[in-house]
Nucleic acid binder design. Structure first.
Lengths: 223, 223
DNA sequence: CGGTTATTTGAAATACGTCAATTCAAGTGG
DNA sequence: CCACTTGAATTGACGTATTTCAAATAACCG
């Protein structure tokens, strides 16, 4: 679905180059509620919320090449704070905003819809993960999700430049506990995170504990 | 925003009456992934997922008068299973599906967008609740959210016909623990749930523990 | 009523968080 | 290349929140 762009789309893309901007880790790329379509040219970011007492919950990771701050085609969307996790480069993509309001669904528009839905699905998974998975299950699930999102297919290692604090804030765990889960996985030869790279050693075991296939014929709920 | 419907919208509404349907609690109103706009004429429902081993996570409650199964204006949306929590009556609202694709944003279309965004915001709150709030905080937060959604404004009691099991599955807690939190609130004279009604006694205390104002100037995250 | 489902409670296990240090890795300036 | 600094990862000891198991009441429904 990302294939069939029109020449009109191409123009949009070309306008992007103008506004490249560099940020250091921790920078607020976009405050909560702000509008403005952007692309993450390089580096990793996340959307998050921070509570009054400092507790942080990360909603989603934003990968290099992905966008943020744009409206879903046809309507505004909840817009949490976006923060850089590594050094990042961004470009404005103001064109996107208008595209989403256009008439005929063209290539770009459909692509944006698809992305929006993926984000949506991921958010539901996130809710299940936080609400009903144990710490090891959350970690396993997250690692596999990351691999898939990175398009690392069956690859056994892939970049994951996130500190344990970030992963903990994503998974609703304390850093210390996350660290212990990771050590467990490491000593069991399941998976290892080292210097920003994930080394997947026992994929089957990981998938097992990830409680994958989270959509197995819903039960009738009561009786 | 719900005010300015066109006569065109009214027609849509009139077509609804045709397909009224009655369901008992526990019925699957709509299996995961299914499409088809519906309205909950009466009764309460929820969207949920159930894991292979029976663990359940509820994503959201659907109140009487609210809709489900429709596409957000302009694009498809993740579609979890919808289940009746009480006896419910539903009507098909097939018209909505087409409205969302229409050209000019009319009253109904804008209303749907607004609803969609509210759902969106609520889902983010839900993530924070599950990831970073303690059990008492989750419960307090949930009760206040319900009051607001019910339009019960400053009312001190309002209907909440949910079993503790449902609330537990919503908040990612065990029934037993939820029950204990509720007892705590009850004996402290904060709030009481009895026979499907919530009796709010110390609103201030509840709001306090709900960690309300969850959006207080985001910190720079790293230094 | 009688049967069923929901709520409530106690006791015990466990998962997870907090506190406080220590180690390790990476970068910087000499 | 070596201190030196800084942030991240790691570990131990301990406290607490939450779950699990099992059973007793209490509310609901035909």
């Amino acid at each position: 679905m990302l294939a069939d762009f029109t020449s009109h789309d191409i123009e949009h893309a070309q306008r992007l180059a103008a506004s490249r901007q560099r940020w250091r880790p921790g920078s607020v790329l976009m405050p909560a509620g702000a509008v403005g379509a952007h692309l993450l040219v390089s580096g990793w970011a996340c959307s998050q919320r921070i509570l009054g007492d400092g507790r942080r919950q990360i909603f989603d990771v934003i990968l290099p090449g992905e966008g943020y701050g744009w409206d879903a085609p046809g309507g505004a969307v909840a817009r949490p704070t976006v923060v850089a996790l590594t050094s990042v480069e961004t470009v404005e993509a103001g064109g996107l905003a208008s595209v989403t309001e256009g008439g005929e669904p063209d290539g770009l528009r459909r692509a944006l819809q698809a992305i929006q839905r993926e984000e949506d699905v991921r958010r539901l998974e996130h809710i299940v993960r936080l609400g009903r998975l144990t710490a090891p299950e959350r970690v396993a699930h997250f690692i596999l999700e990351m691999r898939q999102r990175l398009g690392a297919g069956g690859a056994h290692n892939f970049p994951l430049p996130l500190t344990q604090e970030v992963i903990a804030d994503l998974l609703g765990l304390s850093v210390v506990h996350l660290n212990r889960v990771l050590r467990q996985f490491r000593t069991e030869g399941v998976v290892e995170l080292r210097r920003g790279v994930a080394f997947l050693q026992d994929e089957r075991a990981l998938a097992m504990t990830a409680v994958l296939a989270p959509r197995p014929a819903e039960r009738p709920a009561f009786r």
